[in-house]
Design a protein around this nucleic acid. Sequence first.
DNA 1: AGTGCGGCCTGTCCGC
DNA 2: TGCGGACAGGCCGCAC
Length: 286
Amino acid sequence: MLGYIGPSNKRAQHRMPELPEVETTLRGIAPHVERQKVTAVRLYDRRLRWPVPSDLPDRLVGRIVDSVERRSKYLLFRLGQDTLIVHFGMTGSMRVYRRAPALRRHDHIDLEFGNGVVLRYHDPRRFGAMLWASGDAGNHPLLAALGPEPLAQAFDADHLFKATRTRSAAIKLALMDSHLVVGVGNIYANEALFRAGILPTRAAKRISRLRLGRLVDAVRHTLTDAIAKGGSTLRDYVDSEGRPGFFQNGYFVYGRAGEPCRACGRRIRGLRIGGRASYFCPHCQR
DNA sequence: AGTGCGGCCTGTCCGC
DNA sequence: TGCGGACAGGCCGCAC
């Protein structure tokens, strides 16, 4: 029925920490913590995907955070030769506070800095991670085998073409394979494939170089749009309760099964690919 | 090498 | 109205 907002649609409004969300978090926190000395580390709940190292306070306190970077969906806090690796999993988030607020359920870790700022990690589902890497973090098992960044030059039609020639699996799965390209999660894979006019189920190796080039562009546009929308809320990042309003209800296909395509009006279809919710327009995508 | 799937988690929503 | 179960999904680890 027209106008019906189903459960999947409501879930779609819950924002997963995909690459744009991580990038926005990076931009929000970097100005507050870069070149600051860590004055305290409080571990409230070490249970994440892997246990948070209990010696993290010893390793961090007294050190200076030189910079914060993003690689894939990881945040990398650089302290001299060492790196604090942070991942948000499904529901993790980091917020900046001018001073430590009262603890809430699912608050895991505080990093406190010389300027008084408190960086708090919060993660209800505990799929996230906070790990320490001594020396070159690029050799860390989590980072060593990652493909190119989707917004970097190395991710182009040629790369995608070569990487998919032997792959008979659905293009959506290839797009979400971090060995091939990083940072394209389920939501943006659906959206980018719509923008490129490619069916998510199509065998990757059956897609021409030309169309893969369009997919590269679509991935870039989808991610940069989302980053731009997140960026507009950065002003309110500190001490703000709400999270940035990425995309809101603006998805083309994600979570919209049964609703009209924003381009042609036909009904968006939903199915599962590799166990993941997938959405497409049977008219606009081929 | 590529493929497919189970497992980890909790909040939310649905159906009975 | 209460309760059980399905679902959401990033990413590892494993089997084939």
